[in-house]
């Protein structure tokens, strides 16, 4: 029996585990096959305090993992499959194993959103990608599109511009929502071009990406443009499909009440799985800390109630 099981091993989950283990709570982190969360797919993180020169995303996560394990957190590299949150203790399944816990903190984060246009799904890994840092080298001297207008779209464009022949950022609106500094870096790069008010409506090619239909939203005109790679950076969807009995909002984020509590007493949440506003490594870590402290308080209160009943 664990005092706490944390589902997810991004900044929220690992930070929570550092706090729960230091509070002497027996803690299991169900970290997933792909542990570490979204930062594992990034390069230089320049806005996490404490690293004046920045730090590589995977290195930051490796450090958090070491810190969590140093304090006694157990990390399981299996995917969470299902949980019974209807009675206490909660029963959780991961891989072919089963665990019981007094409390659960859900920090399962969010995954990249795809375009959902014809021709996309069957070409993921064959020219369609959501991770420039992973796949950029396959596009040496090739022409690529980036879809999106946020910081991650700018970052992907800059990574690809180092190797690709040309990079075109396609965005539905007439302005980016990326931070000024990232926009400026992209705009100053000679290899990066921009296509505003436009969207991809179909992806085509023999076994891989060879062209895309690009629609001008203002005029309605559709053009077929040759391209070798399409990188999708249009945001994320929260990973909440597997949590039966946990209340979600209309967009699938976990509904939070009263400081990181879910609708089930004893089940808490932190990070991108509930946070639609900030989605930063440092806010996720902060939420993870707060959820851990709430969990600790809740367990202490349960203990007192049990004592009271026994007397």
């Amino acid at each position: 029996m664990y005092d706490v099981i944390i589902i997810g091993s991004g900044p929220a989950g690992l930070t929570a585990s550092i706090y729960t283990t230091r509070a002497n709570l027996k803690t299991l982190v169900i970290g997933g096959v792909k542990w570490g969360g979204q930062l594992m797919l990034t390069t230089l993180v320049e806005n996490f305090p404490g690293f004046p020169e920045g730090i590589q995303g995977p290195d930051l996560m490796e450090n958090m993992r070491k810190q969590a394990e140093h304090h006694g957190a157990e990390l399981l590299l299996e995917d969470f499959t299902k949980g019974d949150f209807s009675k206490q203790p909660f029963t959780l399944f991961a891989g072919d194993k089963q665990f019981q816990a007094k409390t659960v903190i859900i920090t399962s984060g969010a995954d990249a959103k795809w375009l959902n246009v014809p021709g996309e799904k069957e070409r993921i890994g064959r020219g369609v990608s959501s991770c420039a840092t992973c796949d950029a080298m396959f596009f040496r001297n090739k022409n690529v599109f980036i879809v999106g207008g946020g910081d991650s779209a700018m970052e992907e464009a800059l990574v690809l511009a180092n190797v690709a022949a040309s990079v075109t950022i396609i965005h539905r609106r007439d302005a980016f929502r990326a931070s000024e500094i990232m926009q400026q870096r992209a705009k100053e790069h000679p290899k990066i071009n921009f296509l505003f008010n436009s969207e991809i409506t179909e992806i085509k090619g023999e076994g891989r990406v060879q062209s895309a239909l690009v629609k001008n939203i203002e005029t309605g005109e559709v053009k077929e443009m040759p391209v070798d790679g399409i990188f999708v950076a249009i945001g994320h969807i929260p990973n909440t499909k597997v949590f039966e009995g946990i209340e979600l909002d209309e967009q699938g984020y976990i509904k939070v009440r009263d400081h990181y509590h879910t609708n089930v007493p004893g089940v808490f949440t932190a990070g991108d799985v509930h946070d639609r506003s900030y989605r930063q490594a440092v806010t996720a870590a902060g939420f993870g800390c707060a959820a851990a402290l709430e969990t600790e308080r809740w367990l202490a209160m349960q203990g007192k109630e049990a004592e009271f009943t026994a007397n």
């Binding site: 993921i124 890994g125 064959r126 990608s129 396959f138 891989r208 790679g229």
Partner: peptide
């Protein structure tokens, strides 16, 4: 070899 077999994302 990676090119011949259309590897454009790793791990494959």
């Amino acid at each position: 070899t990676a090119g011949n077999y259309g590897v454009m994302s790793i791990p494959t």
